[in-house]
Design a protein around this nucleic acid. Structure first.
Length: 787
RNA sequence: GGUCGCUUAGCUCAGCUGGUUAGAGCGUUCGAUUCACAUUCGAGAGGUCACAGGUUCGAGUCCUGUAGCGACCACCA
């Protein structure tokens, strides 16, 4: 292959050209003055710290964008802003890693500076990628979840929730990440399969009786506060009410019974420790056992651990087991694999602490959340179950305070006398309590005069759950601003149903009592060619910028149409190649048109439809109907199937071949009619492809149709409507022509002839109405006489 | 353990409310062509639709069960 030949189609150059053009002409700019119906897209603000963009990101954003382009063509005034979630833990962790800094050893302001710097860098990377991909965002409408607009809204939201009684502060057992050193919410957890050991340990009652308990966490022994047995368990009936002695640590603990204990598990005798796991917490609440804390916030044992003080969890575990063995109270161990709750951002197993945190009420309104879930339009429908399941499994209220630096500050101060929280005045927002003064000089409650600021920041989701409101704030014109909320479409991947979607609904309920968006469109994951989830952890992907650089945006977008809504999609070079083939085929058809239509002037000649014209018009209308319906249901993969099928197997395989002879023939009307149909249908074909392949379709539109169509871009044109032809020609039986053509092509091929070979005569095996179609078949196959 | 999903040609997947010989793309084999086509076109091979029951005149399509895979949730003494 020579370089010359390669240059014949410079797809890269085409994409660069139109990318610039769209930006210059502001093709995707939102028009506040438009009277068209609004279509508001509340698109997920990606984490700017993501330095690991891959085909999965391309996939999910492209899929939503197909719909955006379709809606724009359907006459909606599409509002498609883009945000960046640069707030919170992911950014902090990214900065810590990149600059090798430790949050606790750097000043707060220096750390935030680094975060802001990375935030800027990250959003640049994203913007470039989205532009290269042809994502049709209005770049004059962007936000970041740390900017003043988002900060003010987040703080307003908390104050409003507080007034409404949905926000409270309390000392609760909270989930704690000892690595990130912050409180976490239930949604921040992830399961991780872990190899571990079940340890059997001997306790003694004060009477000297031996008891065996089983545990995976012997390091909790110093915090052991009780043993529990089931009331149904006859083995331990006589023990209830007695006391046991904890090995090594020698403190006495009561033996109690509870229905929550399952006699089948372990030895049937359960040890309860303060802050061991969830079960322990339940017990602690019920029986008001000791609240002693065993761990420090960075995951080490404290003084309660006595000689093991200062050891990390795992080291303490080993040492305690060793000591137990020496003491003779270690009976045996069994290897097991169990699932641990770990922090999804860093993989550290969580610990529990009693701590004062801010919470938003979620658990007592499960029915309300389910009702909202029902009212929402889910695409695909079955993803609603993910939401329902999550709501039903909620155990804790949403803990929103984080002991971190980089985030939206909680707008609150506390009275040093009575600890009464004092919130900022709404007109003063945004505030930073560390730098700003509280709105009162004296505490409204105890009349004391000293305040100390809250140092915590909000959970990232506290802000991103407000995106439908943030995007509203980007609009100045009051009239249209009021219509931005609720949004029309919320597109997102399924793993954030339980966070982004759920929390947004929670907030919208408390603030306004309604749904924050009408439709939710769920996309799947990108998988590698072997079917494994794409992820930084396994490095099983090509970076997204490299992908676009190498294969071009249109072919990759073509691949992204492959997944059924809500389903995962394997990465496939073959599919990308197929996309590229389609792009090239479109280019070639265009070339063919240009070669034949030069002298053709639209609208000036007489038309007389022939059978084949009516057939292709009908076929087109069918494909258009299928595409439109599919698109309305957010089913882009069916759209591609429909238009691909029509374009390849009808238009190029048959129609073009069947009219070639007319184009060069002497019958002017016949030639002009064929040209007219070719010209018209191809225009509609590229319009249907436009949402999927925005670059090549723009190129062809500008080259061929711009003169007659006037609009600055194909992406501003209307979605095609059915082509009306008012012809009475009956083509119900046109299939026989296709059959006949296939038969003749087969015959020629088998007999070593080229398809263009002229033949004197041929006898058809297929039954064909030759009176009706004979001439067409003869001309199209270059056979003088067919019978 | 619970919930959901998947299991259709070598590969990746379509198959709507059950209806004649089960489809596409890629791959493969054979052939033609370079006439808009970094080609394109034709022909062929290739499937007991995971398994076992059931409903039905009729099931890839509905029901029940089983197995494998995957995701989420829970438990984990």
């Amino acid at each position: 292959m020579t370089n010359n030949k390669k240059d014949k189609y410079n797809l890269k150059e085409i994409e660069e050209r139109w990318k610039k053009y769209w930006e210059e002409k502001q093709i995707y700019k939102f028009d506040s003055n438009s009277t068209k119906p609004l279509y508001v897209v509340d698109t997920p603000p990606p984490y700017v710290s993501a330095d690991h963009l891959h085909a999965g990101h391309i996939m999910s954003y492209s899929q939503a964008e197909f719909v955006v382009r379709f809606k724009r063509m359907c006459g909606f005034n599409v509002y498609y802003p883009m945000g960046f979630d640069d707030n919170g833990l992911p950014t902090e962790r990214f900065v810590e890693k990149k600059y090798k800094v430790d949050k606790s050893k750097i000043t707060r302001s220096k750390f935030i500076k680094l975060c802001l710097k990375e935030t800027k860098e990250g959003s640049k990377t994203y913007k470039k990628l989205w532009n290269d991909l042809g994502i049709s965002v209005d770049w004059s409408k962007t936000y970041s979840t740390i900017d003043p607009v988002a900060t003010r809204l987040s703080q307003w939201s908390l104050i409003d929730l507080y007034k409404k009684g949905a926000l409270y502060r309390s000392e609760n057992p909270i989930m704690w990440c000892t690595s990130c050193q912050t409180a976490l919410a239930q949604a921040d957890l992830e399961d991780q399969e872990t190899k571990s050991k079940m340890n059997y340990i001997n306790f003694k009652t004060t009477d000297g009786e031996n008891l065996t308990i089983a545990t995976t966490r012997p390091e909790l022994l110093p915090a052991c506060v009780a043993l529990y047995t089931s009331p149904k368990d006859l083995r331990y009936k006589n023990l209830v009410g007695k006391e046991a002695i904890v090995p090594l640590f020698k403190h006495k603990i009561p033996i109690k019974e509870s229905c929550a204990v399952d006699p089948e598990k372990g030895t049937g005798l359960m040890m309860v420790c303060t802050w061991g796991d969830q079960e322990d917490l339940e017990k602690w609440r019920v029986d008001k056992l000791s609240t002693r804390v065993l761990f420090t916030k960075d995951g080490k044992l404290n003084e309660l651990g006595k000689t093991y003080c200062g050891l990390t969890v795992l080291r303490a575990r080993d040492k305690i087991i060793k000591s137990l063995k020496e003491e003779g109270n270690f009976l045996k161990e069994e290897k097991i694999v169990h699932t641990l709750n770990v922090h999804e951002r860093c993989g550290t197993p969580i610990e529990f602490f009693p701590s004062k945190q801010w919470f938003i009420k979620t658990t007592d309104l499960k029915k309300t959340w389910l009702t909202y879930g029902k009212k929402l339009n889910w695409y695909p429908k079955n993803r609603k179950k993910d939401y329902d399941l999550w709501v039903k499994s909620l155990k804790w209220d949403w803990c929103i305070s984080r002991q971190r630096y980089y985030g939206v500050p909680l707008p609150v101060w506390y009275c040093s006398g009575c600890e009464e929280p004092v919130f900022a005045k709404i007109k003063d927002l945004p505030v930073n309590p560390i730098e700003d003064k509280p709105p009162f000089k004296k505490c409204p409650k105890c009349k004391g005069g000293e305040f100390f600021p809250e140092k915590d920041v909000m959970d990232t989701w506290t802000t991103s759950s407000l995106t439908p409101l943030i995007i509203k704030e980007l609009i100045k014109k009051e009239k249209i601003k009021s219509e931005i909320f609720p949004a029309t479409l919320r597109p997102n991947a399924f793993e954030i149903i339980r966070t982004w979607d759920f929390y947004t609904i929670v907030k919208s309920h408390y603030h306004f009592g309604k749904l924050p968006f009408r439709d939710v469109m769920i996309s799947g994951h990108g998988l590698d060619e072997g079917g494994k989830k794409l992820g930084k952890r396994w490095g099983n992907y090509i970076p997204s910028n490299q992908l676009v650089e190498e294969y071009g945006a249109d072919p990759i977008r073509y691949w992204a149409t492959g997944a059924k809504l809500g389903q995962n999609l394997r990465f496939s070079f073959d599919e990308i190649k197929k996309g590229k083939k389609t792009v090239i085929k479109l280019l070639n058809v265009a070339r063919f048109l240009e070669m034949n239509l030069e002298e053709y002037v639209l609208g000036k000649c007489k038309l007389r439809y022939e059978y084949v014209d009516i057939w292709i018009l009908n076929e087109f209308n069918k494909a258009l109907g299928m595409s439109t319906t599919a698109f309305k249901n957010y089913n882009y993969s069916k759209v591609r199937d429909a238009i691909d099928g029509f374009f390849w197997s009808r238009f190029t395989d048959y129609y073009i071949e069947l009219v070639k002879y007319r184009l060069r023939g002497e019958n002017e009307t016949s030639a002009n009619t064929a040209k007219y149909v070719l010209f018209t249908i191809f225009k509609e074909i590229i319009k249907i492809y436009a949402p999927i392949l925005p670059f090549i379709t723009e190129e062809l539109y500008q080259n061929i149709y711009r003169k007659t169509e006037k609009l600055e871009s194909i992406h501003l044109s209307d979605w095609p409507i059915k082509i009306v032809h008012r012809s009475s020609l009956d083509v119900m039986d046109f299939d026989q022509v296709i059959q006949a053509i296939n038969e003749i092509r087969g015959y020629k091929s088998e007999n070593g002839m080229s398809l263009g070979t002229r033949l004197e005569k041929y006898k058809l095996k297929e039954k064909v109405n030759l009176k009706k179609y004979g001439e067409l078949i003869q001309n199209a196959t270059r056979i003088k006489e067919i019978w």
